[in-house]
Amino acid sequence: MSAVSALISHSAIVHLHNLLADDMQRVNQATLGHAQSKVGLVEKVAQHLLCSGGKRLRPLLTIACSHLFRDQPGYAVQLAAAVELIHSATLLHDDVIDESDLRRGQATANRLWGNVPSILVGDFLFSKAFQLMVEAENQKVLEVLSKASTRIAEGEVLQLELLGDLNLSLENYLEIVGAKTASLFAAACQVGGMIVDMPVWLEDDLYQFGYNLGIAFQITDDILDYGPGGEKLGKSVGNDFFEGKVTLPVLLMCQNPDFFPVWESWFDQPSRNEDDFKAAQNLLQGQNMLETCYEYTKPFTEKALHHLSKMPAGVMRDALNALISWI
């Protein structure tokens, strides 16, 4: 857990990790164990990503949601590992698509070993995740995580289709965010409760808690890409800008006809440089656009709080409430 803890910088998520330290240690062991392979390169690539740090937020949600209903999470540990493997597979694929050189401050797998091994090891991790799902012997759990995996892939393709489109609508943006990020948050939460036999009538509330939390998380992440503050949370700022992704700050700026041509001049280029990025940051901050974007998270955090309030009261619900505030 040391690599994970190094990137956790806020008391709310630290508290949740501390509450679930033993379970998360087991999740880490299960994740790394299922990334092992007799093929040396497969294991090198997988271990490189899995040991590079990160908050392990998605598997943490699976374990936390199982503890809402039972003291012992049981098979939720294995499902949390499956969730982390799915997430890790998408990161390997993302880095190839985005031609990224750095992730979490380290060289990406595609930079070190090339695109083909990264894609194939991503596929390997997806397969391992599905093995863990099947072992749960729960058809509904398999359906939930399979659907989330499908939506992630659809979100990736939709984002690629709309890459650099400065006329992107808020609806399209939220559709991408909902598919790429929120769908796995939602599934991670839902299966955590399902595997410990939570009441059926609470399944949708747990799903909606995770979904709305995921939307708020991604909007915040998109804001932090333009800083300030992203570096303090272990985030490499500017990636979205350099990759030509139209996220919420850009989308809202381009709704103003005075600023559309400026962004068009940047995004019409095959690439952007550091001076362009600094100018973009100054423009956003000068218009208080980042503060405006934070207002867009409020409906989603309020919905997350509403659905979480339906869950059994106790230490775990309080910790998840605090996590919403951290987002």
Rank of each mutant, 00 (worst) to 15 (best):
R58V: 10
M253Q: 13
K128Q: 15
N28Y: 11
Q47L: 07
I13T: 15
S2P: 01
A21Q: 12
L248K: 06
A279N: 14
D123K: 08
E84V: 11
L79G: 14
L132S: 13
E137R: 13
L206P: 00
F277K: 00
P228G: 09
M311N: 10
P261T: 06
H15K: 00
E135T: 15
D95R: 10
N110S: 09
V39E: 15
S52G: 11
T301Y: 14
A82T: 05
I119E: 00
L224F: 11
D94N: 02
Y211V: 07
M133K: 00
A279C: 07
D240E: 02
K147C: 11
E156Q: 12
Q36Y: 08
H48F: 10
E243Q: 15
L283I: 15
V116P: 00
C293T: 13
Y296T: 04
T108Y: 14
F217R: 06
M24Y: 03
E154L: 03
V262Y: 06
K38G: 15
H10V: 11
L284Y: 02
K44S: 12
W113H: 07
K310F: 11
L125T: 09
V42M: 04
A179C: 09
S309T: 03
Q287A: 08
P299V: 14
Q285Y: 01
V144D: 02
K140H: 13
A279S: 14
A6G: 14
N167I: 00
I152K: 02
N172R: 12
A319P: 03
E137F: 02
T247S: 15
E171F: 10
V42G: 07
S265N: 05
F124L: 02
L49R: 04
T297I: 06
F241T: 08
F124V: 01
Q255Y: 13
G193Y: 00
L91T: 14
G33E: 01
L68P: 03
L283P: 09
K303E: 09
C51N: 12
N239A: 15
L158Y: 11
K235E: 14
D123G: 05
K55N: 05
D71I: 02
Q255V: 04
I13R: 07
W263K: 12
T90Q: 04
H306I: 03
S100T: 13
L145I: 12
G178D: 05
P249L: 08
H67S: 14
S88H: 04
V83D: 13
D258N: 10
V196Q: 07
L16V: 07
M24C: 05
T150W: 07
R103G: 05
G192R: 05
L248I: 12
W113L: 10
S265H: 03
D222Y: 05
D23L: 02
T292E: 09
R104A: 11
P261L: 05
F209R: 01
T150P: 06
M198Y: 02
K38D: 15
E84P: 06
L145Y: 06
G33M: 01
L163Q: 12
E291P: 01
W266D: 09
T292V: 09
Q287I: 00
K55Y: 04
D318R: 07
I176N: 06
N28S: 11
L112T: 10
P257R: 10
P261M: 06
A80H: 06
R111A: 13
G227L: 11
R103N: 05
L102A: 04
L57A: 00
D221Q: 06
R58I: 10
G114F: 13
S309W: 03
D23Y: 13
A129H: 00
Y296S: 01
H48E: 15
L170I: 12
Q72R: 10
R70D: 12
P228H: 12
L248C: 06
